[in-house]
Design a protein around this nucleic acid. Structure first.
Length: 221
DNA sequence: GCGACAG
DNA sequence: ATCTTGTCGC
């Protein structure tokens, strides 16, 4: 499997995360109809990402897109963006539909440096985003809130769907709006509907067997 | 040194 | 995340 590149410097990565975290904006979502979601599935060193646009008003998927990329970085807690951000961005940029907010399978602000992959994606694409994780990466659960043990700040919320979900602000959203939206999209499965759809789409993409890749590692036909 | 650790 | 057998339910 892929390993950490020789050129990688943890101190620089942290500096990037702290700098980008300062660009995160917290504000009301406003009216939401189309909710996009992205997820990534793996098979060996290939990352199959998928993005879907779901209309809550129409109750249906408006569009879907996928991208297949070589995994260039391993999974390292707190550094998930270095592995999954590009695949997610590429699938999202191919999505032929406008959306009001994007749900990401992972943490947003509930990260030791305040830049989980949901926030990273939101800042990079300048779109509203929400982090929805099945398990906790960082923070102390107090009631239905996630608190940063080092400064007491509220960095996330625990939303009870089928199982507890760790929801946090990605970008251009408030924690209240994020938690409210996730609740309204809970299903009988573990994740909210849009993410479940993206998850299934990413797994279906595994049937594709890439033959060629561009210089950035993205497969093309 | 020990425990925690998104996907 | 992925691996992996049997088991439960529609």
């Amino acid at each position: 499997m892929s390993s950490v590149p020789e050129s990688f410097r943890l101190e620089e990565a942290r500096a990037v995360q702290r700098r980008l975290a300062q660009r995160v904006v917290e504000r009301p979502l406003g009216e939401v109809d189309v909710v996009a979601a992205v997820d990534v599935a793996y098979e060996g060193d290939l990352a199959f990402s998928a993005a879907v646009a779901y209309s809550m008003r129409e109750g249906r998927v408006l569009a879907a897109a996928r991208s297949i990329n070589k995994a260039l970085f391993p999974y390292v807690p707190t550094l998930l963006s270095f592995r999954e951000l590009m695949p997610m961005v590429r699938a999202l940029l191919k999505l032929p539909a406008k959306y009001d907010v994007v749900m990401v399978d992972g943490q947003g602000k509930a990260h030791p440096y305040r830049l989980g992959i949901a926030s990273h994606l939101g800042v990079v694409l300048d779109v509203a985003s929400i982090g929805v994780a099945k398990s906790k990466l960082y923070g102390e659960v107090v009631g239905d809130k996630l608190i940063d043990p080092k400064d007491g700040e509220v960095i996330g919320a625990v939303v009870r769907c089928k199982k507890p979900l760790y929801v946090s602000v990605g970008h251009k959203a408030t924690l209240e709006d994020a938690a409210s939206l996730v609740k309204s999209l809970c299903t009988d499965s573990a994740m909210p509907l849009p993410i479940l759809l993206a998850h299934n789409e990413a797994n279906r993409a595994k049937r594709i067997k890439p033959k060629a890749f561009d210089k950035w590692g993205e497969a093309y036909e």
